[in-house]
Amino acid sequence: MAKLLRTIVLLMLIAITGIAAAQAIDPLPFRDHAEELRFQHLTSELRCLVCQDENLADSNADFARDLRHKVFELMQQGKSDAQIKQYLVDRYSDFVLYDPPVNGRTWLLWFGPLLILITGGVVVASTIRKRSRSGASAASAPTENGDDW
């Protein structure tokens, strides 16, 4: 079963690359440079579902180009970045967002590092306290000859 699955994935990949004639380099008629920057930023934070290791801005896949054009079209309609992201999330799930939203499912992701930092910080602080107290008198400065820097 697993082997079959892999073969299938491989075949799908072949199917995809076979048609990947379209290019990430994709001049679009932006109104001004600010709009172009906004587009570049937005598409760089969206994940391509076909080439899943690439963002929409860089992906050569035909599908990525379709979505890029959709994003452009929505921008022309005056939609905000949040609305455009929501539009894609409604159809393709949170998977398209390289910037995962902060919610119940991702709190560990967003606040985990903070938890580790606090825990580690407490350990470091207590170590420094202990060591500076235990040897307040003994904490002699090293010799002043400059070699023991």
């Binding site: 699955l5 299938i8 393709y92």
Partner: peptide
């Protein structure tokens, strides 16, 4: 990964 297609993204629809 041996039981699922790792690239399949379940549809929210």
């Amino acid at each position: 990964n041996s039981a699922h297609d790792p690239t399949a993204v379940p549809s929210p629809l």
